[in-house]
Nucleic acid binder design. Sequence first.
DNA 1: ACTCGGACGCAAAACGATTTGCAATCCGGG
DNA 2: CCCGGATTGCAAATCGTTTTGCGTCCGAGT
Lengths: 333, 333
Amino acid sequence: MQAAGQRVTIRDVARAAGVSTATVSQVLNGGRPVADATRQRIEQVIAELNYRPNTFARGLKTLRSQLVGVVLPDLSNPFYPALVRGVQDRLGLSGYHALVVNTDADRAQERELIAELVDRQVDGLVLITFTLSRADYAALAQKDVRFVVVGRADGFDHVHSSDYAAAFEMTAYLLDKGYASVAHLAGPVGGGGPAGPRLAGYRAAMRERKLRGASAPVVHGEFTLAGGYQAMAGLLTSGARPRAVFCANDLMALGAIEAARAHGLRVPEDVAVAGFDDIDAASLVRPRLTTVGHHAGELGARAVDLLLDRMRGGERPPADVVVDFELQKRESA
Amino acid sequence: MQAAGQRVTIRDVARAAGVSTATVSQVLNGGRPVADATRQRIEQVIAELNYRPNTFARGLKTLRSQLVGVVLPDLSNPFYPALVRGVQDRLGLSGYHALVVNTDADRAQERELIAELVDRQVDGLVLITFTLSRADYAALAQKDVRFVVVGRADGFDHVHSSDYAAAFEMTAYLLDKGYASVAHLAGPVGGGGPAGPRLAGYRAAMRERKLRGASAPVVHGEFTLAGGYQAMAGLLTSGARPRAVFCANDLMALGAIEAARAHGLRVPEDVAVAGFDDIDAASLVRPRLTTVGHHAGELGARAVDLLLDRMRGGERPPADVVVDFELQKRESA
DNA sequence: ACTCGGACGCAAAACGATTTGCAATCCGGG
DNA sequence: CCCGGATTGCAAATCGTTTTGCGTCCGAGT
């Protein structure tokens, strides 16, 4: 029995096993050989005393926290929990834990929180940011911070869905299906994140079919239900009557459907609606949402793979992992 | 300019300011008075050198990590992200961060992960568990671990929705609305978490109206889409034709609706369905889901309030915070 | 018998902060 | 002119690890 309230330290173990703390540490971390007899004795004592190394003391020496920071806009956006789960599961396998922070896609927050995490000595960072630029990433890299970007970030480790290709394909699908005019509800104006590539993919598809201009307008909105509703309402109020609307994410698509209904339009009979992300709700709503599925969990897992490799000292050129997508052709378009 | 790659320590600051490290520490943490002139000089040096105290060294002395563990079943269950966001926001205000882990409601995981978090010296825990008993909590308390339970846990700090009352009220609402028979899709058999109280509330309401038995069966299932689907399918296949079904959470309700449709039944015309939680998807689906709304975010925030108070040494009897609910009467029932 | 080289453990020095006991200084009042 | 009490700052111990440079011991080779 251990004296109550007293923490068990490595010294207690050493004393009880009749060795020095150095030897106990070897048993714990390897590095140098320890005679079998000694090792077993020590291991037994550790078990008996229920000794747990002190994280702080260890970190102080090793400069490692076994913590990875995850920076994202908003955990309550249904796309992210799945991604985070992927991150956590993969991290857990290697004994790491995740420190998740929400930035609300605000530049000041993004910078501030990253700095905070770095101060907390996280071993690595998974970044899902909306306002950070190449320069910001470069600054981080210069400080020897290991990180992976989820999204586009050429020149740095990053994993992303093929937003451009998926948007292109979805737009082409809608066009092929016979919808004469396809509008696009894009993300925030000048928005970071995936808004750009998705818009570009849409435009490329439209161009390929020689369609542009008034018959196929692009309107911007927040990546939320309300954002989608407003964008769609604005579109309809302005008199536009697109035959189909491709939305930059599912939340917007759901909002757009609400707006269409509020204007007395049926989906998909009067106006077809397609989304992007395939969040849970997408297959739950009626009509079921046609959208782009792209495996949030895998995105997170692959990001961690890259990060762990880098943290283990992997010297290699920046990697660019693309996670593929599938059009989920359902009822709304 | 600082020599590249070298971490700035408190000693560097002390040297640059011409004082001892002790004094620097005082201006950082207060505790003893420091002359204004000295303080300002030190603060300026800190800013110039961009000095950040080392978390490990500090933790080693103070035994504080500024970290709070959050233990929950599964972040991708849409009810939890909102709760976690509440936790994070409230924690952030006090300079804490959250360490979120998923247990998948598995007993071994729950115990293991809690132990891991304690080893990591989290300052407190927010526990959302399904298999832990009073004895488990008591063991934690004995180890001087600060924690708050989200859910029922008399004798310990806990915050919870009035599951019993809400279930009672929802059941009564369905009955009052004229649905002759109301079945219940309960959580896992012998399940922990909120399954018990919700079932009890349902039973109490049925009893009050003198209804029981075969006309109003209870079937168990997992708290998931698939669980709801299976439970409902089982019910229907067995020949039962309840006029309404009250499900222990929204995910199950959504699954139940799928199952009902698969059996050629319309919702709510042939069978009404009600849920519990009011997750985002609830107001997105058609028909919109009638359910119990109970402010996940507030649940988390209140839990943190309790926890912080306790961590600051608050000596008081265990608190029992009840977060209220509202019936969201929509279209599915 | 003597040397040489592994194996194995130990001692002691970090790591970077916080926290006390104590010394120095300054001040006003008797 | 001296004394006592504030006020301020310093030195040094401490937190619990990891990590090296060195002994020591032992068996094998000559």
